[in-house]
Simulated assay, not measured.
Amino acid sequence: MKKTILLLSLVCSLAASAAEPGSSKETSNGTCPVTGKPADPAITYAYEGITYSFADEASRQKFTNDRAGSLYQKLGGKAAIDAAVELFYVKVLADKRVNYFFEDINMNKQKRKQKEFLSAALGGPIPYVGKDLRSAHESLGGLNDTHFDAIAEHLQATLTELKVDPQLIGQAMAIVGSTRDAVLNRPAKPAAAATTAVP
């Protein structure tokens, strides 16, 4: 795991570990991210360069425990997601099966949105506020399982190339697989019947 984080950090030239309390310049919130109550500026935790304030000590502890146990952190945090998205789009844009979907897209904006989405989906601290998956993909006429599988293939290849632990890759791919119906604008399957496997 340390090799994975180190590799991803070098690719991004960023530190992949969480910051210690008090090491960030400013507080990012006036509302506790755990309880939704007003935050106490004296109860803080700095994570990836952002200092979060909490309503109470129990909320701060829950936040730190959730970060440590998240797939996002196990993969290497922000630095890992940044590195993976950059490499992922190199692969996607070279693939004639799907690259035409990105012909008129501002790729800097697309990469930023993808980083935000993946970070949130994998347990990062900042909620995703972009379009929902159905809305974001509804204008892509002809989008089908073949395209979804190609994109998933590139994500899996990216994580493998970055030497991410296979078990963590499996967890990440299960999360990605769970978005298939939304991305392809299909009716959602009941939770018990839904399959999340991605090739």
Rank of each mutant, 00 (worst) to 15 (best):
2 K>R: 08
2 K>Q: 14
4 T>L: 06
5 I>N: 00
6 L>Y: 10
8 L>S: 07
11 V>A: 12
12 C>K: 08
14 L>I: 11
16 A>G: 15
18 A>W: 04
19 A>K: 13
19 A>M: 06
21 P>S: 06
24 S>V: 11
27 T>N: 08
30 G>N: 13
31 T>K: 12
33 P>A: 05
35 T>G: 09
43 I>N: 07
43 I>A: 05
44 T>D: 02
44 T>A: 04
47 Y>V: 11
50 I>Y: 10
50 I>R: 13
53 S>H: 08
54 F>Y: 13
57 E>G: 03
59 S>T: 07
59 S>Y: 02
61 Q>W: 01
62 K>T: 15
63 F>I: 01
67 R>K: 13
69 G>Y: 03
71 L>E: 06
73 Q>S: 11
74 K>S: 11
76 G>K: 00
78 K>G: 03
79 A>T: 06
79 A>P: 03
80 A>S: 05
80 A>N: 01
82 D>T: 14
82 D>F: 10
82 D>H: 11
83 A>M: 02
84 A>R: 01
86 E>T: 13
89 Y>A: 07
90 V>Y: 09
90 V>M: 12
90 V>A: 12
92 V>E: 06
101 F>W: 04
105 I>H: 03
106 N>V: 10
106 N>C: 10
109 K>I: 13
114 Q>W: 04
116 E>Q: 12
120 A>I: 04
120 A>V: 03
123 G>I: 03
125 P>G: 03
127 P>F: 06
127 P>M: 01
130 G>Y: 01
130 G>T: 00
130 G>I: 00
130 G>A: 02
131 K>P: 08
132 D>C: 06
132 D>K: 09
136 A>P: 08
139 S>R: 15
142 G>I: 02
145 D>R: 13
148 F>N: 00
148 F>Y: 04
151 I>R: 10
153 E>V: 11
155 L>E: 07
155 L>H: 05
157 A>F: 11
157 A>N: 15
158 T>H: 03
160 T>L: 08
160 T>W: 07
163 K>Q: 15
166 P>Y: 07
168 L>V: 04
168 L>W: 05
168 L>R: 07
173 M>W: 00
173 M>L: 08
174 A>D: 10
174 A>V: 12
177 G>N: 05
177 G>S: 04
178 S>I: 05
179 T>L: 02
179 T>W: 00
180 R>V: 05
187 P>M: 03
188 A>T: 02
189 K>G: 03
190 P>Q: 08
191 A>L: 09
192 A>R: 09
193 A>Y: 11
193 A>S: 09
194 A>L: 11
